[in-house]
């Protein structure tokens, strides 16, 4: 590993967490001499990845936004999914999310806001614990070995009192998901929020992502039309990715 590159990345990670840090704070967090950190951070400022405010504090710069946007724009699944997610949100009246499995977490690639004009947190780029979301369950149900990604985040965390954290119980849920290709979650990641999600399959029959809606738990059970809209979106994206079957290949036991 190249030490200075590694240190530069550590600086970016620290600024992601703290948002604004003085040179002294940054040095203390990295456990490095001020002169060492100054040299690296000055380079990052020169290249636009870090910015310095009028008080002299450092923060992430516009350059990282450009890099992040390129990541989002070059992801084919996301490109295909965005119009479907937007339509799904419009049709159902609920927020729609598209995610991919990264280890034991789901990375949200797109978040179509609930179309009611209210202020909502933008969830693009957030990591959700896979076992606590319908998106993650839809992906894990068609994963060749669901225990492998889950073992990366073991022990499974309870996000609410209703999060399922026992592997055996999760596997029973996965089997139930494979019957219809639809995953449900009820108050499992945030209280009062429930989800309906379905897997997205590529041309090799592998589930590469999931799309779903978030609805208030008070509106359960989800209407047939909502479940159908989620399934149609998942099938539509899968077809665009070249899939000939849906909902994908079940793991062999």
């Amino acid at each position: 590993m190249i030490q200075s590159v590694d240190r530069a990345i550590s600086i970016l990670m620290e600024l992601q967490g703290a948002r604004r840090l003085s040179l002294t704070e940054l040095s203390a967090r990295l456990g490095l001499a001020i002169s060492t950190v100054h040299g690296i951070v000055a380079t990052l400022v020169a290249r636009g990845l870090v910015e310095q405010d009028s008080a002299g504090h450092y923060a992430l710069g516009a350059g990282v936004l450009r890099l992040g946007n390129v990541y989002l724009d070059s992801n084919e699944l996301r490109l295909r999914s965005v119009p479907w997610a937007e339509t799904l949100a419009e049709r159902t009246g609920y927020a729609a999310r598209v995610g991919v499995l990264m280890g034991g977490t789901v990375l949200v690639l797109h978040h179509a806001l609930r179309p009611d004009g209210s202020r909502q947190m933008r969830e693009i780029g957030v990591d959700l614990p896979a076992h606590g979301t319908a998106l993650g369950k839809a992906l894990l149900a068609y994963h060749p070995a669901p225990r492998t990604p889950l073992s990366e985040v073991a022990p499974l965390r309870r996000l609410t009192g209703r999060t399922v954290v026992e592997l055996a119980e999760l596997e029973r849920e996965f089997a139930a998901i494979r019957v219809e290709g639809i995953a449900h979650a009820e108050d499992e990641i945030v209280l009062s929020e429930s989800e309906v999600a379905a897997p997205i399959v590529d041309d090799t029959g592998v589930s590469v992502g999931a799309i779903g809606v978030v609805l208030p738990t008070t509106e359960l059970p989800a209407e047939r039309a909502t479940i159908d809209a989620v399934r149609n979106a998942a099938i539509g994206i899968s077809r665009e990715l070249g899939a000939t079957t849906w909902p994908g290949v079940a793991p062999s036991d």
């Binding site: 992601q16 967490g17 948002r19 957030v126 990591d127 959700l128 965390r157 609410t160």
Partner: peptide, 15 residues
């Protein structure tokens, strides 16, 4: 944040 929607933000929820 380790619970609730704020936990979605991970490290960004600090501060």
């Amino acid at each position: 944040a380790r619970k609730g929607r704020a936990s979605y933000l991970g490290v960004r929820s600090e501060g």
